[in-house]
């Protein structure tokens, strides 16, 4: 597959040069992404490529800009540079339009509709899907997160922290995304539940070819479940990882733990 086939999005000066990488064509290409809040710059040029179905961890200290990067990708903060999803430029689009293109974002703090029931939360996630597929999608999500089944008619805000986290991920999966942005989905989960959640994510990712960007504080865990990890530091994605971990290459975003 060529990187720049006919009918592709017109290239701008900021697009990465064609022909980098000889693996599968990337689903997501981020180049020179800069973003911030008012005068405060947070991201200083992030480069990133993600293939369809690929699961990549993003590590990094507090305040490095991990959340800001996900927010820029989903349209919640304005970004500059270039973010191409399958050739379509995402920057400048509203979050509700970016979701329609297949990007689901589970935000830090979950972003549930607290007064609405668990079932209603899931139905809202599915509202863009064809009506005849929603029931099947709901069954899938409840099979992945069976604890939710017992609480379907309970307000989301009254779930336990871990259950809320599962609901947030479940709701995002109801949109059947091509790219899933997960901001610390393990927060509030017991270790066993965390592993179960990551198992589900990995299974969905490979089965439905959902690419995932997983922000995670627990480096060891993230590296266990993802194919590679990036480190965000002061607004840039950098080479390397925690001391002692093997580094597979010198190029950024190629840090592969030995598995």
């Amino acid at each position: 597959m060529t990187v720049n086939g006919p009918g592709d999005h017109p290239r701008s000066l900021f697009d990465p040069p064609p022909g980098t990488g000889n693996g599968p064509a990337a689903l997501l290409r981020v180049h020179g992404l800069r973003a911030g809040y008012g005068p405060a710059r947070v991201l200083h040029g992030v480069d990133l490529e993600l293939a369809a179905g690929e699961m990549v961890a993003v590590l990094g200290p507090n305040g490095a800009g991990k959340t800001t990067m996900l927010r820029a990708l989903s349209g919640l903060v304005r970004g500059r540079g270039s973010v191409l999803l399958d050739g379509t430029e995402l920057l400048g689009r509203a979050p509700e339009e970016i979701v329609r293109l297949g990007v689901a974002h589970v935000p830090e703090g979950r972003g549930l509709f607290a007064p609405l029931t668990v079932e209603e939360n899931l139905r809202i996630g599915a509202h863009l899907r064809p009506a005849n597929e929603r029931a099947e999608d709901m069954r899938r999500v409840l099979a992945w997160f069976p604890v939710l089944r017992a609480h379907l008619s309970q307000p989301a805000g009254t779930l336990s922290g871990g259950e809320q986290q599962m609901l947030a991920v479940g709701r995002a999966l109801m949109t059947r995304p091509r790219l899933l942005l997960l901001d610390e989905p393990s927060r509030g989960l017991a270790p066993v539940a965390t592993r179960r959640m990551f198992d589900v994510l990995r299974a969905v990712g490979s089965h439905d070819r959902v690419a995932m960007l997983l922000v995670e504080q627990d480096a060891r865990l993230a590296l266990e479940f993802t194919s590679r990890a990036l480190v965000m530091e002061s607004g840039r994605l950098t080479v390397g990882g925690p001391a002692g971990w093997p580094q597979a290459g010198r190029r950024p975003s190629l840090f592969r733990p030995g598995r």
Binding site: P95, E96, V99, P107, L112, F113, L116, T175
Partner: peptide, 12 residues
């Protein structure tokens, strides 16, 4: 309930 979460779910 939450306009930002609604936008992230694709609600206009």
């Amino acid at each position: 309930a939450d306009p930002v979460a609604a936008r992230l779910s694709g609600v206009r």
